[in-house]
């Protein structure tokens, strides 16, 4: 149960449980063999656009896909 000891660390890195478990899930997907690997990765595509609102005005929407998110959270350490 190495994950128990890891909790404070990923919390400190600014991750939530969800982000952490998604990273883990992504790792597992990457461990699959080829035909299944692409299939699994394609199934879990992330795409949405999000815009924050300030003072009743939407800010510029930003597109989110997995690559952006990885970049933002520094996932490269984990991957």
């Amino acid at each position: 149960m190495a994950s128990n000891a890891a909790v404070p660390f990923w919390r400190a890195a600014g991750m939530t449980y969800i982000t952490y478990s998604n990273i883990c899930a992504n790792l597992v997907r990457n461990c699959l063999k080829e035909p299944h690997k692409t299939e699994a990765i394609n199934r879990e595509k992330v795409h949405f656009s999000i815009s924050k609102w300030e003072g009743g005005k939407p800010q510029r929407p930003s597109l989110f896909d997995l690559i952006h998110l990885k970049h933002e959270l520094g996932w490269r350490i984990a991957l």
Binding site: N26, K45, S49, I50, W53, G56, K57, L63, L66
Partner: peptide, 25 residues
């Protein structure tokens, strides 16, 4: 519109999946 904090769109471009939804969380 003063009460809107975040709006998320284009969620359904790909088939909905858990990763996607949980990311929005």
């Amino acid at each position: 519109k003063q009460d809107i904090e975040i709006s998320i769109t284009e969620l359904q471009k790909n088939p909905l999946n858990y990763t996607q939804v949980s990311q929005s969380y």
